[in-house]
Design a protein around this nucleic acid. Structure first.
Length: 220
DNA sequence: GACTACATTTGATCCGTCGG
DNA sequence: CCGACGGATCAAATGTAGTC
């Protein structure tokens, strides 16, 4: 994927960088601050270049595995994203528990959004706006492929699934969470996470926020 | 209410520099 | 000398808006 020659780089795009380089500038959101950095699940530090940063953690098998794959490998990107999500997920857990701090979402919404509008993708654990989750799921690398081979699940169905997973949290931390943890069990980190009650509490805190959203019930 | 298109932001990699 | 970090750039994905 080496683009090689970009001989014509005379174009200086000065129109970039509209906003200051502030680390995390507070939004209009009263309680939610969005971080633009990814959190390393190994050292817990925020990194703007998570993929490169992960290279420094050569002792971790998953990291080695990821970087042993060809750069254009889809598998590699998948693993990288998984590690990124893992770190962010851990971080968000702490933030939501404490109620303060920047949360890392996959993408910052332009308009003001309420916490209740965000849900985690049941496949990759990325944090998305619920309204858009269905589109993400369509291309989510962690999604079982057999679902869209023939027929793509409708938007409504995806939302229903996501809602179901979210509400499953409220019931008993059942299928959704354990399924996730099952996927993560390849890592030693995951074993820690599995035993970490904070994850569970995070799930519950999520429901506290989402549970108030009556619109979700439509999808159930 | 749902889908498509456009605009914006993200994330990975390249280049150069600094620190141990 | 080697490794890590910050800035810049490119391509892809996501968010928002508009239309049917």
């Amino acid at each position: 994927m080496e683009v090689a020659s970009d001989s014509g780089n005379s174009i200086k795009d000065s129109s970039r960088d509209p906003e200051g380089k502030g680390e995390l500038h507070e939004q209009d959101l009263p309680h939610l601050i969005f971080s633009k950095k990814n959190y390393c699940y190994i050292c817990g530090k925020p990194q703007s270049k998570i993929s490169r940063h992960l290279r420094t953690h050569k002792t971790h098998a998953e990291v080695v595995r990821a970087f042993s794959l060809p750069e254009d490998s889809k598998e590699r990107k998948t693993i990288l994203e998984k590690m990124r999500n893992k770190g962010n997920f851990q971080h968000n857990t702490e933030v939501l528990q404490g109620g303060t701090g920047p949360v890392k979402v996959k993408r910052k919404p332009k308009a003001k959004s309420q916490p209740g509008k965000f849900i985690h993708c049941m496949h990759c654990q990325g944090m998305y706006i619920r309204k858009e989750l269905w589109r993400h799921v369509r291309r989510c690398p962690f999604k079982p492929e057999n679902q869209d081979l023939d027929k793509e699940p409708g938007r409504t169905k995806v939302l229903a699934l996501a809602a179901a997973h979210e509400s499953a949290f409220s019931q008993q931390i059942s299928s959704g969470v354990w399924k996730l943890l099952g996927v993560m069990k390849q890592d030693e980190v995951a074993s820690v996470v599995r035993n970490d009650l904070s994850i569970i509490q995070f799930a519950q805190s999520l429901y506290k926020r989402h549970g108030q959203d009556p619109t979700k019930h439509e999808y159930m």
